[in-house]
Amino acid sequence: MTAALILLAYAALLGLIGPRLMDRFRWDTASPRLAITTWFALAVSFTSALVLAGAAIVLPARGHSGAAAGLVHDCVAALHELHGATGGSIVAVIAAALIWAVPIGVLVAAVSVARSTAAERSRLRRALANAPRDPHLGAAVVSSARPAAYCIPGKGGLIAVTSGALALLDRSELAAVLAHERAHLAGRHHLLIALAQTGKRAFGALPLFARLPERIGHLVELAADDAAARSSTRSTLARSLLSVAAAQAPAEALSAAGGDTVARIERLLDASPGRGRTGIGTILGGHAAVAAPVLILAVPILTAVSFACCQV
């Protein structure tokens, strides 16, 4: 029971103040990929802590062999013995919910995200079916005065640029934009966002998951910026971001939430060429920072295993 309580407390800690800890270390600007890994480590660690807590509740009742139904019966009987008739039933329900409802909830959320994504994606592909493809750019050209560039993942991915963007950007700026979009596709960034949406759908009430899709969305933009800056230069990419952004019509509805374009441009202009900023990530040294997600993942598993061995 102690192990279960520790694991639940750990999950609550991650779910409630995990994001605040992440915001304190401003390593997202220095290393977006490490930040993405750490966010998902937090999410996976939270989920496995819940499931392991359920397992830790029924663990003392183990030691019976036989059919699954008999096992459940024995298990409930043992819990009754441990916690009294009412208490035992409540604990049994909690354990079952943790062991079964958590994974099933995540699975249901994943299926619903996958379905809505597939429907939306085919709608976009149908709309783009008639757009002429430019073989040199490797992109579909949408005739629209508003400068914009998009990528639609899946089936090898499709990059689209508007004629407005072609008119606005010079050759090197356009190359930087296309490199950014190709980085999204090569990095399978849509899968990361789909995972974050799954987490939000399953546990959206908790601070850890409430804004996860937006956070991951921002981080994949930074990662794609870094990739594009490697084949181009940071200042070229910053210039193309700046010109495309300045040509947009402002969206009043968004003023509260705000976009991240300014932050991206300032990050590209600030950073010395080729080097990340000296954030906590670089101060601690890359290796130490990489250990963070591994540690986060290991905590619930180690807790459960150590208690299982000591048999509290």
């Binding site: 994504t117 993942p153 949406q197 495309v244 952004a245 300045a246 947009q248 969206a251 003023s255 939430a257």
Partner: peptide
Amino acid sequence: DRSATLLRFIGRISPDELARLR
């Protein structure tokens, strides 16, 4: 702006942001 379906080079811009960009 950013979904598993479509990733946009530039997200929607708020009026404040546009002023800062200028």
